[in-house]
Write a protein that binds this DNA or RNA. Structure first.
Length: 488
RNA sequence: GGCGGCGUGGCCAAGUGGUAAGGCAGGGGUUUGCAAAACCCUUAAUCAGCGGUUCGAAUCCGCUCGCCGCCUCCA
């Protein structure tokens, strides 16, 4: 049974989507005015892991993530660089997709842009005014928080408790300090759209409601985001959506914890952030994803010097195990994904002589699933992965193992499948087909066989120097009694 | 001021009623021409503090201390 911690009810709940095995899933996406940092990456990766696990559990998942391409910070940046707004948003949208891909995060089923939703957002605003939830003042349209009785149900805040005195400036147009803007009136030099209230642009909160409703329906199963979005962003989404439709907006609210640096939240405004593009210069995507699995997704995760090196070593265990297993594959073995299907869905196809082996393997698979079933406990799931690698490493190295190639292949298939949910699948899996890789393989084959000859002749000094020099070029080679392997 | 969260071995981190997973680091070993990898053994926490509930608590309740987040754009 899959249990999810729901921020709305503040408790663990059994996951039951609205429509049996179909899940509608929305995650708040980036505002495209800069590269994204490793803190943003935590959000993207967390919800990618969750999405992949739901798919693994047999759900059909429709996943939508917005691109905010009209917003104050974008306008400011465009002004600073003296370029049109579109230059900024196109550039950083492209970078967002690029680095998302590099991190192995699945694309959403659709990434709507805020600017393409404007007609629908205007529809919503009209509806909200008609129903008495919003009012127009001097070209702005504001949502009246007082009109929505459930306001505060997600964040647990009471309107009267909020410190309005501390708010930088309460706009004069507002009837109440907590009212938030649905439509912003035009100021000279800003992009604008025509509306019944004059030229202007939509308020930030509205786009998520609009996209969620348009692409996933009036009530959706899961809405994710960083914990800082809980208030006011998600609170406002609930208010405007439920006021508009009269129906519940989201069944399960999920919020990921922050990345902490030097004891503080990593954020753009504090200036203590690391861009993912820079981190990727020194660490692999799998290392970064392993790091994200080192803590429960709802808890804070400390990013500090050396922590990624630690993560790298952790992932190396899994990576080395892939390599070890692949060395024992028989050429006639089916591809891993077919073997994995047999393992998970067509168990009657499995060779009966491997029964004990599968029994062990399934015990660890169950351990992994139990961990993930309890609110996606990544650290515990990784523990189960280590149990699998240890089992395979030990068992398959015993003397006279029966059916070694088959066991290696099935073991590989399962490990790659389960680890892959967390973005820790075999990094080599997709490589090896391009021409460059083929050439590289040939060169290494020549080099290593020559070196093998040197070792046979006990010319160790030269053989070792080849190894050292390759290491400096980022290629690690390992000598075994019967063979030598290499990896990048 | 209001609301919420956190405090587990040297470090990271699971565990939320029956006497502490796992990873990294450290020590020893098997293996190896050496190195790496792998495996085995091992060092190390009474779970922030105090009090309470219970046959029994890291795990429930209360208080104290410390840290953090939200209340303003922010994953």
């Amino acid at each position: 049974m899959l249990q999810i911690y729901n921020s709305l009810t503040r408790q663990l709940e059994e996951f039951q989507p609205l429509y049996k095995d179909y899940v509608t899933f929305y995650n708040c996406g980036p505002t495209v005015y800069d590269f994204f940092h490793i803190g943003n990456a935590r959000n993207f990766i967390t919800f990618d892991n969750i999405r992949r696990y739901l798919i693994y559990r047999g759900y059909k998942v429709k996943f939508i993530q917005n691109i905010t391409d009209i917003e104050d910070k974008i306008i400011r940046k465009a002004r600073e660089e003296k370029v049109p707004v579109e230059n900024i948003t196109e550039k950083y949208t492209r970078y967002f997709f690029d680095y998302r891909n590099k991190l192995g995060i699945l694309p959403a089923d659709y990434h709507p842009r805020a600017t393409e939703m404007i007609p629908f957002m205007i529809e919503m605003i009209k509806g909200l005014i008609e129903k008495g939830f919003a009012y127009e003042k001097g070209g702005d349209v504001l949502f009246s928080v007082a009109a929505f009785k459930d306001y505060g149900k997600l964040s647990g805040k009471k309107i009267e408790d909020l410190r309005e005195g501390d708010r930088k400036k309460v706009k004069k147009e507002k009837e109440a300090a907590q009212d938030f803007v649905l439509w912003k009136s035009y100021k000279p030099g800003e992009p604008y759209w025509e509306s019944p209230w004059g030229k202007g642009r939509p308020g930030w909160h509205l786009e998520c409601s609009a996209m969620s409703m348009k692409y996933l329906g009036e009530t959706i199963d899961i809405h994710g985001g960083g914990t800082d979005l809980q208030f006011p962003h998600h609170e406002n989404e609930i208010a405007q959506s439920e006021a508009y439709t009269g129906k519940p907006f989201v069944k399960y609210w999920l919020h990921n914890g922050f990345l902490i640096i030097d004891g503080e939240k990593m954020s753009k405004s504090l200036g203590n952030f690391f861009m993912i593009k820079d981190v990727l210069d020194n660490y692999s995507p799998q290392t970064i994803r392993f790091f994200m699995c080192m803590s429960h997704y709802r808890k804070p995760l400390e990013y500090r010097k050396g922590i990624l090196t630690n993560a790298q070593k952790g992932f190396n265990h899994i990576k080395d195990c892939y390599q070890f297993l692949k060395e024992h594959f028989s050429q006639t073995e089916s591809p891993p994904f077919i073997l994995c299907d047999e393992l998970l869905h067509y168990q009657y196809l499995l060779p009966s002589e491997l029964e004990n082996f599968f029994k062990q393997l399934f015990a660890y698979k169950d351990e992994y699933e139990s961990a993930m079933d309890e609110d996606f406990n990544f650290p515990q799931a990784v523990g189960a992965l280590f149990n699998i690698t240890k089992f395979l490493n030990t068992h398959l190295r015993e003397d006279n193992v029966s059916h070694l190639p088959q066991k290696a292949a099935y073991g590989y298939a399962l490990l790659d499948k389960l680890a892959g949910i967390l973005g820790l699948g075999d990094p080599d899996y997709e490589k090896g087909t391009s021409k460059d890789d083929k050439t590289m393989d040939d060169i290494m084959e020549i080099l290593l066989s020559t070196r093998q000859q040197l070792r046979k002749n006990k010319e160790f000094a030269l053989a070792d120097s080849i190894r050292d020099r390759l290491e400096k070029s980022g290629i690690t080679i390992k000598d075994f009694p019967d063979k030598t392997t290499w990896s990048r």
